[in-house]
């Protein structure tokens, strides 16, 4: 088992009066593709936002690359090497595709080789490089949001439901792109509702329910155990075959 790049220990998060995360513990091994699964409202998005410091952990400990980042400000967490692709894409609509990518490159300059690689993953971005992101379709916005996370090498990429609301063929493109990212050796923590996509990409899986971790292990084990899937996720095999 490789060293954990990210470790959450007993993390609690409150939003207003609501106690959302109730002692979350899991690890993301370096170089792995870890998928965080769970029903709606299980706390998956809150987990990613807490890691990014967008919501503060009220208790517990988050360590990234050996350092405690629990109480760090969001910009510091991002600068330490974590890229974040939120659930709603959050591309800057009034900025062009190029400007979105320039902002994501902390040095202000885009590496040409890296950009070519991104264009090979998402050719549409090359064609619409000079157009406002607000004019892109939903799938293209999602591609841009992911491209922003890839424009510079990052130690860890957090991705929140990238296939949500996309047409099946676009989901297929997205899965192919993530496979490339995975083959390039990136460490990814992916929140996903689409078990088919999760199964095709994940090395490891963590399942949440009601703000707690209820299962962690290898994706291959969960993929092979339909009874476990049904218990954890309420899935029937025929639903995703």
């Amino acid at each position: 088992m490789p060293d954990p790049l990210l470790t959450l220990q007993g993390v609690h998060t409150h939003i207003g009066h609501y106690h959302i995360l109730q002692g979350v513990d899991f690890e993301v091994p370096r170089g792995s593709f870890t998928v965080l699964l769970g029903r709606n409202g299980a706390g998956k998005t809150t987990t990613l936002r807490t890691i990014m410091g967008l919501w503060k952990a009220s208790r517990g400990n988050i360590r990234f690359a050996g350092e405690d980042v629990t109480s760090r400000a969001t910009p510091d967490i991002a600068a330490s090497g974590i890229a974040y692709v939120p659930e709603n894409m959050s591309v800057f609509s009034g900025l062009t595709v190029q400007e979105n990518l320039i902002l994501a490159a902390r040095t202000g300059k885009i590496d040409a080789v890296r950009l070519e690689w991104i264009f090979s993953l998402f050719p549409a971005l090359q064609r619409f490089f000079g157009l406002a992101a607000g004019t892109l379709s939903g799938g293209q916005k999602q591609m841009l949001a992911i491209a922003r996370a890839l424009i510079e090498p990052r130690d860890l990429i957090l991705v929140d439901e990238p296939t949500k609301g996309l047409a099946p063929a676009i989901v297929g493109n997205m899965i192919r792109a993530f496979r490339e990212v995975k083959n390039a050796g990136a460490t990814v923590l992916l929140v996903e509702q689409n078990f088919m996509a999760a199964r095709m990409l994940g090395d490891a899986v963590v399942v949440m329910d009601d703000g707690r971790i209820v299962h962690r292990g290898a994706m291959a084990e969960l993929a092979a155990d339909s009874a476990l899937q049904q218990r954890l996720l309420g899935l029937h095999m025929e639903a995703h075959q």
Partner: peptide, 14 residues
């Protein structure tokens, strides 16, 4: 311009 649209995402970019 980005901050006017979505200040949180600007922070998440560092």
């Amino acid at each position: 311009r980005a901050g006017v649209e979505n200040p949180e995402m600007v922070e998440a970019l560092g």
